[in-house]
Design a protein around this nucleic acid. Structure first.
Lengths: 194, 194
DNA sequence: GAGCATACCTACTCGTGCGTAGGGTTACGC
DNA sequence: GCGTAACCCTACGCACGAGTAGGTATGCTC
């Protein structure tokens, strides 16, 4: 039943999706949807929650914390893009939807914050191993940028049905890791004085 | 009047925003809004258009095409984050809104495609200067990731009213340019064979 | 000052879609 | 066979908000 909801929400968007259509698509009638899942908002949150949990699990399962940073990043990215590739309309559109609608932005922000935290933790760990340290806020912002770039490529992937998730992950590594590795080695860019 | 519309759309979101509220906020009555700007969708598109054009102009004006790549990137980013910083609720929320709602996704995709194209062109130019070349699709994807990372930081900036746009731009350079510079010098990351 | 047009408002219609009330149907106990 | 209970449906009430019709004031022409 959640599958049907995800499908319709994806295709129509939250507002344009009617409960009638979801019910029809699920092969039951509207009052049943209300009986099982509650209001439209609750239904959407349930979808969001399930997809989010699945995604986090896919990533967490792949990126064991005892691996070196680059290996973790690579496995995490591969799992992530694999997931998006397998749930194209599910993920990307739900995600895009949720960002726009205030009632869910918070829910999503929490999910994303967890991701950012994981990435930041990973970077921090790698930095300490190098005997280095940078301000927490800088770390957070870098992690934020990496997560953003990844989401952006996920959108790209969702819009290009023929693209290969694995290859996309490799490309992401090329952007993310080459830059991050520099930072880890203490190379930084400074604005020109003009 | 567009200012009022942008403000309300930002605060409420496209659907939750009522034409009554926009009219009230603009200090006129609803029929006037219809007389001047047409339907709600047209009004939203007008907002989107104005903000988008302003942003593109801000960037284009700062990043002259005859500068070296890193300098162009830096100036472009600085202009971009400066713009977002100055139009916090305008930009970020409009942008977030537009991605979710199908009727406007296309409009926005066009804008973003122009940005991606500019970034890709810049990278390509820099690559050729180094006597190198990579597949157009890879170039596009890298550019896409950079644009995504930048948007992500723009969101971050919009959510952190005290943050400094200039500093955010510097951080973005640290992520983007260090990675890109590596790519330009022919350094690439390859997946481990496992 | 009468006629007219322009600029604007108040107050309505009407469609749409969420959420629900109340009725039918099937299966089981007695 | 009849009561009853679980289950699901059709068909509606109701609120909300986009878009409009028709009326009012202000200023301009003759």
């Amino acid at each position: 039943m959640l599958d049907a909801a995800v499908k319709v929400f994806s295709r129509r968007g939250f507002h344009a999706a009617s409960m009638d259509e979801i019910a029809e698509d699920a092969g039951i009638s509207k009052p049943m949807v209300y009986a099982y899942l509650g209001t439209k908002e609750e239904l959407f949150v349930a979808c969001l929650h399930r997809e989010g949990t699945r995604m986090m699990q896919a990533i967490a399962g792949a990126a064991a914390p005892d691996l070196p940073a680059d290996e973790r990043l690579w496995r995490g990215l591969r799992a992530f893009f694999g997931f998006v590739g397998a749930h194209r309309d599910g993920w990307a559109v739900l995600y895009r939807q949720a960002r726009g609608e205030q009632p869910f932005a918070g829910e999503l922000a929490t999910m994303r914050a967890r991701l950012v935290e994981v990435v930041a933790g990973m970077l921090d760990h790698a930095l300490r191993a190098e005997g280095r340290e940078i301000a927490a806020i800088d770390l957070e912002v870098v992690a934020y940028a990496l997560v953003g770039a990844t989401e952006s490529l996920a959108d790209w992937l969702a819009d290009h049905p023929d693209a290969d998730p694995e290859k996309t992950a490799t490309r992401m590594m090329n952007v993310a890791w080459l830059g991050a590795a520099q930072l880890l080695h203490g190379v930084t860019w400074r604005p020109p004085v003009d």
